[in-house]
Design a binder for these strands. Structure first.
Lengths: 211, 211
DNA sequence: GTCTATATTGAGATAGAC
DNA sequence: GTCTATCTCAATATAGAC
């Protein structure tokens, strides 16, 4: 089992934290295979044995980074169950919170993204899919709820979920590729509204809708 | 200047073509940095000096792959100007053709994707943006045409373009991450229709629309 | 154009002192 | 926990014969 070394609040980051930060930065900019442990330890201001002491090897520090980010996203997904309001409101809040977390964790997200959709880069296996599936099913659940409540049109929940995921991914991808023209939270919200004026049931039937 | 060695139709692939094929396959599955020239030449059934003879170095074979794929996509984008019909029809055909080309070139597309949105993996610079921008501007041009012709609603063309790009990207990303549940051309078309029932102008105003 | 053989550098990882 | 010094192997790339 890996040792758990929690950092005291306010303390200057110890070697372990500095190594994680340096690794996140370098993996983010160069990728897993192209980053060397020499670069990581140099950026962290320590020597190689320190990395091997805390993380066993290069794969270990990678997996620890993925795990930390995974835990945060997982917590967010789990918290949806507690939300109140219409399906549209829940969906909006969930997507906004997801997007904010993406921005906070953008370094590891970029790495995850490129490994999930792209080549593995020699990185050890990490089950991104388990999270990915859960995220999608959460969205689909909200869509189905929206259809049941007649907030959304009665079309294929799968296709409707893909449309929503498309909007989220676009917002993230702009952030990854062109942060200078970032949509931001407001832009993502506008795009979602655009989608909902098609997906939503309002405005279509001049009379009727909510009972 | 690189020498140009076109392959005669029907001839068995020569060393150069086999090297390109092997490199595409390996870069696609492992990424640029994690792929070694030893693996490439072994998969191509030649020895190292052959690769260096044709491509100068590892960067050279990568750039040649990117260039070949770039030329194909660029040709597709240029051909849009010649299309006839409504903006909606043009958009649908253009997206369908793009998606088909993505599928044909999926190996290099996966690599481009992961490098464009992700870390550079130690790969040499290639200006993906020049194509990316052109592609987006083509879509935006069609959206603006659609608004002018009152086929689409009079909302922000930028946001509407993002919604469309989201749908295209989702179809590609499913192909990259989960080909077994692929949307396919039909699925992408369904998703676009879903979007257009929001973006399009039909069905909103009970009377009016096209003059 | 293609080979064998080799130069050279830098990678991941560790031994063992403190 | 952290260091210096070092091991070992594999990476890119080339020289030079055929």
């Amino acid at each position: 089992m890996d040792q758990i070394v929690l950092q005291k609040r306010g303390s200057p980051p110890g070697s372990r934290q500095r190594l994680l930060g340096a690794a996140a930065e370098l993996f983010n900019s160069k990728g897993y295979a192209a980053t060397t442990v020499r670069e990581i330890v140099k950026a962290a201001g320590v020597t190689k044995p320190v990395l091997y002491y805390y993380f066993h090897n290069k794969e270990g520090i990678f997996l620890e980074l993925m795990r930390e980010t995974y835990v945060k996203f997982n917590g967010l997904v789990d918290s949806v169950r507690l939300e109140k309001g219409s399906a549209r409101e829940k969906l909006g809040r969930f997507i906004d919170q997801s997007f904010c977390l993406f921005l906070e964790e953008i370094k590891t997200v970029r790495l995850m993204y490129s490994i999930y959709y792209g080549p593995h880069q020699g990185a050890p296996f990490f089950d991104f899919d388990i999270y990915h599936r859960k995220y999608q099913e959460t969205l689909r659940g909200l869509v189905i709820e929206g259809i049941r409540r007649k907030e959304f049109r009665d079309e294929s929940p799968e296709d409707m979920t893909w449309v929503i995921i498309g909007a989220i991914n676009v917002a993230i991808e702009i952030e990854l590729g062109h942060p200078e023209v970032s949509l931001g939270r407001e832009g993502l919200d506008r795009v979602l509204n655009l989608i909902f004026q098609g997906i939503g049931n309002e405005g279509k039937k001049p009379a009727g809708g909510k009972k």
